[in-house]
Design a protein around this nucleic acid. Structure first.
Lengths: 230, 230, 230, 230
DNA sequence: GATGAATGAGAATTCATTCAT
DNA sequence: AATGAATGAATTCTCATTCAT
């Protein structure tokens, strides 16, 4: 940090931060409250009043920070989620090869969702809705995640750790679905357990499959897939 | 019974059947209309009036066949879905060994959802939403599917086609998630393609995994995690 | 009864009665059912369907015998009630002098209402409503009763058994109100008792008042009323 | 506190009061409007929209002050009516002996109802209707009034101004009924007259009865009642 | 005459959003 | 900026009445 940026830092702190932090603070508070309420009741069954109450602000105050109710969900995907994804990206970058990257990704993903259960619920719930105002954000988010995975898979195929003949989209789908469902199972489980502990077994499963033998048990099928004779 | 009354009898029968069929017909018509509307707009954004219009009946008629709006969703899960699951069950029974059963299950599942896109959308969407009233049905449905899968997996482990050391819940979760996501991808895809064609590659992937290497070089470790250094 | 009318009677019985009685029968059944339902829930909270069910007929059948829901109430006042009043009139006629007539009236009134509790409830409840379609009937009914009383009172004043200086309307009002309230008390009482037994004490009270002393306890007031020293 | 903030303080106070008054004001306004509408059309034939219009507020505003339509009626009995009854109680307390108390009660009662005709109509009408939700309030109200009367009657019997042998419930019933009917007659009369003027004649009538002679005109009856030979 | 499915007008109630303070 | 009372459009649901069978 050079002098300049140091001063800026101080000044910012002095001047703006207090008010900006207040602003941010209220924005965050409302967003957090909304996520909690959404997680408990679902988006459509939640009312703006409930969110306001949970956030400790007046109903009208919500509209100083969000355009409307839909906008809260949009911002959730834009900020909360994007923020999470920055973490994902970083974790991936820290992996040396594809499989390590995959493992890192899944680990942080599970960690992040375990740490913020409400976020996890809202994410899992509202992501499956179509035809909504937050659609664009969801798609964008989804794309970010898929792109992240795509890169890993492609790298794995280049490196030889992932079978080259597999169709990218399918592999990606299986991975996404599997991760999703592991989280869902955890969310709906009556008895609490450590979600992150599922990361490594999950990765192992994705890589080696459930099959007991490496050889396709069924030659015809294997031919059909052209994935068999290895 | 003279000829006259015999004819009357027949006519009456005709009338009765047609009217009974009408009744059934209307129930089905409304349910089908509702599914269409739900698929297009989501449950909460759909109005009873829209459903009535789509079904070609008056608003009040809906309430002759369904207790309230929620009940329509409940009946969807109770009837439409249960019906589909009967098909799943039969397909599974027709399989000789575990892997064949799995393949059969996934095939009919994809077939069924491909054939009734609206049903697929509503199923995928509303299953992930919070529906206090339909919760019981969704849980029951979900359980049926999971039980079906559990049986297959256990059989596979007995038969030796599925690794014995894998945790049932995790395997099941990965399978369910993968299938779900394959359907979701298909539903959201802009370019239409044959969903059923995904069945065999999907099964292959689930069984053999994405990994290129034959065996986990270190069985125990591989299972646990640390399966990387090969 | 001459021969002619005897034959008529028989014929009527033979020919018409069966169908007319059926007709009458259903009319009565519906009316009775309606009164029961009205008594239990009040006019506005009762539905035509409930009445139909109680009467054991289809909803639509109601409209073959009554113009609409309001009409049922109107007919209640027109028939059930008029019928009761015929009995009242007869009882009054059987009295020799005014006080006996009064006693007779009150006795039959209480008897009739005790015998048909539902009728009593509906009568007491719906009579106090204003602004309804049955208004005309209620007024007519009410007038009949008031006229009956008026005649008795006037006769009593002529006979010397009722103070001449009392205002007819007031006396009538007090009598009507007192009877009404005695019935109401009985209707709302948790412990059942014989309503008719109240008749004589009630009459006694109306005639002699609650006061213990012969003379008005308060001369001035007595003067004001000119009803005191007798 | 400087002058400025002092002024602000005052202003705030002003504002607060005015706003609090507004709040109260609106509650009262809606309640008053509702009573007017109920008086004109009866509870069940009145719509919330009509009340809102009469009160000059939006439909939704009603629900800021009342839980639902029923609640308006409940509050009517809880507030408007209780308020009236406080006045009754006070008037009774001001009477020296039983008969004076009775006269006072009846006078204020008639006064109060004459002054607020709508209240009188709603009271007389809805008290006799079946209102599941308002039942408790009506009962409570009714009990207050009956208790007031009971005390007076018992005192009168102690004092010797009311015949000891009379049954409390009957006496009370006759009084309540008579008062009720006097009010009803006034409410339904086409030609307007002074209701309060009925108070004294009514009391006189209740005390001395309608009978011209103090002696029971009919010995048997008198014996039966055991109210005769005094 | 009898039925009861169908209708649709009408009512209560909710709630996102606005705006005066 | 913050408030929260007020709004009124929108939605669900009921039920008297009709009418084809």
């Amino acid at each position: 940090m050079n002098e300049r940026s140091f001063i800026n830092g101080v000044l910012k702190k002095d001047r703006t931060i207090s008010s900006r932090e207040n602003r941010n603070d209220k924005y965050e508070r409302i967003l957090e409250a909304a996520i909690k309420v959404f997680a408990e009741q679902g988006f459509y069954q939640s009312t703006v009043s409930q969110i306001a109450k949970e956030a400790g602000v007046a109903d009208g105050t919500i509209y100083l920070y969000f355009k409307n109710k839909d906008d809260i969900l949009i911002q959730f995907f834009r900020h909360k989620t994007r923020q999470a994804f920055e973490g994902f990206k970083k974790a991936v970058e820290e992996g040396a090869h594809a499989l390590e990257k995959l493992r890192n990704l899944i680990r942080v993903h599970l960690e992040t969702f375990q740490e913020d259960r409400n976020m996890a619920v809202v994410y899992q719930t509202e992501t499956h809705q179509i035809h909504r105002s937050a659609e664009a954000q969801i798609k964008e988010m989804s794309k970010m995640y898929l792109d992240l995975l795509s890169e890993i898979i492609k790298q794995g195929q280049t490196e030889g750790s992932i079978r080259k003949e597999l169709h990218l989209t399918l592999v990606r789908g299986v991975m996404v679905g599997a991760i999703d469902e592991v989280i869902n199972t955890w969310l709906h489980s009556r008895i609490p357990y450590d979600l992150v502990a599922m990361a490594d077994p999950l990765v192992e499963l994705l890589i080696h499959g459930v099959g007991a033998s490496r050889k396709p048990e069924n030659p015809e099928k294997a031919n059909r897939q052209k994935g068999g004779k290895r």
